[in-house]
C-alpha cells in the first residue's frame, strides 16, 4: 500500500516539463536587427508551432525566446535558453535534441518539439555568426581605408 502511494505521488509530482511550461525562463525579445543579436526563427509544419530564439554576447543580456505552441515546445525552448547560457558558440552547437528530450522526459510523440528547439539554437547561432563575419569584413574595410 505504502509503495503504491509512493508510486502515485511520483506520478502526480510535476516533472521538469511542467516546471518549464508554467515558469518559462527567459521569455522575451531582442532587436533582431542589432549587430550582436542572432535570431533563430523556426516552425514545425506538422503541428504549426513557431519558435523564436535569440542569442547575444554577454550573459547579462540573456537569451530570450518566444514560442507559440504546445507545452512541450515551450518547455523545450525554455530549457534550451538555459543551456545556451554561458556557452561558446561551438559548445552551444553541441546541444542535442535527445538531451533536451531526456531532461524533460518527453514522450515519443513530443520528440519533434525538442527537435524544433535544437534547430532554433542552430539557426540563431548561424545568424549570429553571419553577422559577426559581416562585422569583421566591415572592420577590415574600415582599417584599410
Amino acid at each position: 500500500m505504502a509503495a503504491l502511494r509512493a508510486a502515485g505521488a511520483a506520478l502526480l509530482r510535476p516533472g521538469p516539463v511542467v516546471d518549464h511550461y508554467e515558469n518559462p525562463r527567459n521569455v522575451g525579445s531582442l532587436d533582431r536587427n542589432a549587430k550582436n543579436v542572432g535570431t533563430g526563427l523556426v516552425g514545425a509544419p506538422a503541428c504549426g508551432d513557431v519558435m523564436k530564439l535569440q542569442v547575444t554576447l554577454g550573459t547579462h543580456r540573456g537569451r530570450p525566446f518566444k514560442t507559440f505552441g504546445c507545452g512541450s515546445a515551450i518547455a523545450s525552448s525554455s530549457l534550451a535558453t538555459e543551456w545556451v547560457k554561458g556557452k561558446t558558440v561551438d559548445e552551444a552547437l553541441k546541444i542535442k535534441n535527445t538531451d533536451i528530450a531526456k531532461e524533460l522526459c518527453l514522450p515519443p510523440v513530443k520528440l519533434h518539439c525538442s527537435m524544433l528547439a535544437e534547430d532554433a539554437i542552430k539557426a540563431a547561432l548561424a545568424d549570429y555568426k553571419l553577422k559577426q563575419d559581416a562585422n569583421k569584413e566591415s572592420d577590415k574595410k574600415a582599417d584599410n581605408a
Binding site: V42, P45, A46, V50, K52, F68, D119
Partner: peptide, 24 residues
Amino acid sequence: EPAQETDCDATFLTEIMEINEKLA
C-alpha cells in the same frame, strides 16, 4: 509523406509570429 522538416522561411514565420504576438 507529410512535411516534418523544420521550417526556416523567415518571411513567412515572421508573419505567423507577429499574428501570434498580437493574439497574445
